[in-house]
């Protein structure tokens, strides 16, 4: 069992790059059993082994075309960086959140978000990340990042976000 390199600070708020997701889990407190409620230090974006570096420098999200779940070349570049970071930081796990824009029915968008999250998971696994470290989650159209009803917002909402969670593997 690895001891955590980064101190787990219970109750610390998500900060910096993770702030784009702040509030997402404040309803339920965590990502199910694994990350439940435990905050952690995201570190400095200058530190290549920090979650801050993951979210800000590598990029924690990839975007999708309308009604698509296939990965663009740009998305694959970002995910290769995510996979390398995860390989170097085995004490972290991740939850991949798939999202859709508001143009679509609720149920279909839930299924579409699941497809997007799964596309990211499969790519990360193909790059050597253990599948057991990755969970997928769909929000459908329930948690838009941008709130206008134009393509400029929709393009940012059609996303899959890899959210780093504390929780080592044995």
């Amino acid at each position: 069992m690895n001891s955590l390199k980064i101190a787990v600070l219970v109750g610390a708020a998500f900060a910096l790059g993770a702030c784009t997701n702040a509030g997402r889990f404040d309803n339920d407190g965590g990502f199910g059993a694994d990350g439940a409620g435990a905050g952690f230090d995201v570190g400095s974006a200058q530190d290549p082994n920090s979650p801050a570096y993951f979210s800000q420098t590598i990029g924690d999200r990839v975007l999708f075309l309308v009604d698509q779940s296939s990965l663009t070349p740009q998305a694959q570049t970002v995910l290769a960086g995510q996979a390398a970071w995860l390989a170097n930081n085995p004490e972290f796990t991740a939850v991949i959140e798939g999202h859709a824009d508001e143009q679509g029915t609720r149920e279909y968008n839930l299924a579409l978000g699941a497809r997007r999250a799964n596309a990211v998971q499969e790519y990360l696994v193909s790059q050597g990340v253990a599948a057991t470290r990755l969970q997928t989650l769909t929000f459908g159209k329930e948690r838009p990042l941008e709130i206008c009803s134009d393509e400029s917002c929709y393009a940012k909402n059609r996303r899959a976000v890899t959210v780093i969670a504390a929780g080592g593997t044995s």
Binding site: L110, A111, A114, R115, N118, E122, L137, T138
Partner: peptide
């Protein structure tokens, strides 16, 4: 475990629910 589920609806018998279950990205 590891699945997501949504879009449930009762059958007329009130005993059965039909719904969507997602595993491995497939619904």
């Amino acid at each position: 475990s590891g699945t997501m589920s949504f879009a449930p609806r009762f059958a007329p018998d009130g005993q059965t629910a039909v719904f969507s279950l997602t595993t491995g990205g497939n619904t």
